[in-house]
Amino acid sequence: MIAYIIRRLLYVLPIVFGVMLITFILFFVMQTRETMAKAQLGPRAKPAEVKNWLHERGYDKPVVINAAWADPAYHHTDQPWWDSIFINQMKNFATFELGESDFNREPIGEKIKSGMVPSLMITVPAMFVGLFLAVALALVQVLYRASALDTGMTVACAVLMSIVPMAYIISAQNLMAITLKWLPAFGFDLQGWGTIRFLMLPVSVMAVIYLGSDVRLYRSIFLEEIAQDYVRTAQAKGVSGRGVLFKHVLKNGAISLITLVVAHLPLLIMGSLLIENFFGIPGLGGLVVNAIQKQDFAIVRAAVFIGSLLYLFGLLLTDICYAVADPRIRLS
């Protein structure tokens, strides 16, 4: 198991390398560096200003490899072949040096750190609350399957799924903030326990948005398990309906649940753009979208770097969860 984890951690290196290479190439294929500079200096920037802007940020170098080095005509150059944008950046990333924003030269590490905190404070509780609620409701439906309660809950899920996410956001803000004045409708401020006031609405809205479809999905997973032979064996032993469900079915169903939870991982890391936008939360999602709009490549590549690292760790964690939940799976 330890050997497996170490091997998986080593795989992270080539994968992140590949992800970054593609990101770099895509970014420079999509546009010329001059348009990048002019997007920030203004369309009437003088060529000297553009040149200076590119030089300050190291963008006057070749993208991937300094091919000029191999050309005998340029051999006198003091720039070695590894003097390229990509390799210089990767060297910085190797020491977790994220650099400065292209736009206003602010340190990106600070920006990402300050964006990740509110993002994770919303998405992590939302995921756990959502998961807990969905599993609990699905188990209730399975326990009382083929009853009026089951049918009623299925209809309720269909209704929940049919409502646009935006409607949840606006009606929650309207009810809790404007009518009842219990919670702030908008904004975020780190102030210890007081932060919770800002988190309540976005977290609960985010949990409810996915609730309908999650309950439907988990219900079908548990129903599939309850039709298995081992359930009949447990009943034949004299185990009660609840015992069968909470012990036998839940543990088997958990294996399928893990797969579904992984699907939420990217969302967890990059924040939910919609929620962050509507609740005025200065999170990662907004940071990245802003950077893309402003063509701030430095922020985009740093976010891709951090995002791909976290995603890979998430996948590793998933595999470990599988091995813990299912004795038939051995990590080796």
């Binding site: 081992y230 064996t233 034949a236 004299g238 036998h248 088997n252 294996i255 004795p327 038939r328």
Partner: peptide, 19 residues
């Protein structure tokens, strides 16, 4: 169930709980 009347089923590989 299990106490007075106990069962052995056809397919042992699926009748035992795998986890």
């Amino acid at each position: 169930r299990g106490k007075r009347i106990a069962y052995v089923f056809q397919e042992p590989s699926t009748s035992l709980n795998p986890v």
